[in-house]
Simulated scan of single mutants.
Amino acid sequence: MKTTLPGKYILTLLATLILSACGSGGGASPSAMPQPKPEIGRPQTPPATESSPQEAPPLAPSETEAPSADNKAQQPSESQLESKPNQESNPQPPKHQERMPEADAEVFKRMQLRTQNGIEGEDLMKLVFNDSNKKIELTLLNPENKFIKHEMRTLRDSSGELIGYYGYALVNKPLKNDFGEYDGSQQPYFGLLDADESKRQRPEGLGEISYRGNMLYRYHESPAEILEADVSARYYGKEKNMSLNIHDHRGGLWTLHEDRSTKSSSRVAVDERGSVAGHLFFAGQNGGKQELNGTFSGGLYGQNGSVLTGRASHEGQNSWEGVVGAKAE
């Protein structure tokens, strides 16, 4: 027997089902909606959008997966790695390196034949460096000229590096008249001294340094009599000044002062470049009154200022001139 549902009942049932479906769909969030599954074998690349600046990183290949062709192109080859300098095996040199000592020949190139009045006597003689004894010497240019007296003393600092020289030369120079005949002679004198100015420097530190050396000098009234005096000096690192005494072999003493007065300090300032200068006062062998008797101008040179050199002279009555060379003890 076939049973049929009334039409009214069917309409009511359909309306109920439609309302139920609409109520469940309206309350679900978009994220709860099912996402389409990617196709197997083709990676999905999420689209770049401005609202999503941070993208999820791509999945890293497994350890057993071989790198792609693009990755191989980005990796350096073994030859490129070998040609790259190794920074650890080639460290950069320090900014402050100790200055390498110069060869004697390089320093000697900067030497000149310097006298009391500048550069003179170059038509008579020239400086030469003797490689056998490592000393600076003089030679005459004209065989007709002869040395009456001469002496050169080479200056080296505490490390043995060449600094300069001091000495003198008394030369006999024949004269000729307009007919080429000999007509007497001259005996010019040269007090010689030069030091490499690039090596002038004040000692470092607060300690004291003692110097000893000599002065070669002559009085103008006795031009052929070359004398020698003993030089003693002391540098005071804390005050950046020094004292200087010159003892002649007759018992006299020159003392360096800052000003033209015996009451001025007997310690003269040494400037940043190592220069020193002052006024000399002389007292005779009996320890008499000190009198102004000249000036000194010089400086400290070489490693830690271990060489003292300069010129001393006095103009006027009993005038004289000399060159000084001393070394740190």
Rank of each mutant, 00 (worst) to 15 (best):
T4Y: 11
K8V: 07
L11K: 09
L13C: 10
L17S: 14
I18Q: 09
I18H: 09
S20N: 13
A21K: 10
A21R: 10
C22N: 15
G23Y: 15
S24Q: 15
G25P: 09
S29H: 09
S31C: 05
S31H: 07
Q35M: 08
Q44W: 14
P46K: 01
A48N: 13
T49P: 08
E50L: 15
S52C: 12
P53N: 06
E55N: 12
L59P: 08
A60P: 10
E63N: 10
T64D: 14
T64L: 07
S68I: 02
A69N: 06
A69T: 13
D70Q: 12
N71H: 12
N71M: 15
K72V: 14
S77M: 04
P85V: 05
P85L: 02
E88P: 03
S89F: 07
S89K: 15
S89M: 10
P91M: 00
Q92S: 14
Q92K: 15
P94L: 05
H96T: 13
P101I: 01
E106H: 05
E106G: 05
V107Y: 00
F108I: 05
M111T: 02
T115S: 12
T115R: 08
I119P: 05
G121P: 03
L124C: 04
V128R: 06
V128M: 09
V128L: 11
V128N: 07
D131G: 12
N133Q: 04
N133C: 07
I136K: 00
T139Q: 13
T139M: 08
F147H: 01
E151R: 10
E151G: 06
T154W: 01
R156V: 02
S158F: 07
S159V: 04
E161G: 07
L162F: 01
L162I: 06
I163C: 02
Y165R: 01
V171E: 04
N172H: 15
K173M: 10
N177V: 09
F179N: 12
E181K: 06
E181A: 14
Y189A: 14
Y189M: 15
G191E: 03
Q201G: 10
G205R: 09
G207H: 05
Y211H: 04
R212H: 10
N214K: 13
N214M: 10
M215Q: 08
L216G: 03
H220A: 11
H220Y: 11
P223N: 09
P223K: 11
E225L: 11
I226A: 05
I226Y: 05
E228D: 03
A229V: 00
K238W: 13
E239G: 03
K240E: 10
M242F: 05
N245F: 07
H247F: 14
G252D: 01
L256D: 02
D259Y: 09
S261W: 01
T262G: 08
K263V: 03
S265A: 02
S265N: 03
R267T: 09
R267L: 08
A269F: 07
V270G: 02
G278L: 01
F282T: 02
A283R: 09
G284T: 06
N286S: 15
N286Q: 14
G287L: 02
G288Y: 08
L292G: 12
N293P: 04
T295P: 02
Y301V: 00
Q303V: 13
G305N: 02
R311H: 03
R311D: 04
A312Y: 02
E315Y: 06
Q317L: 11
Q317A: 14
W320V: 01
W320M: 06
E321D: 06
E321M: 08
G322S: 05
V324T: 04
A326W: 00
K327C: 07
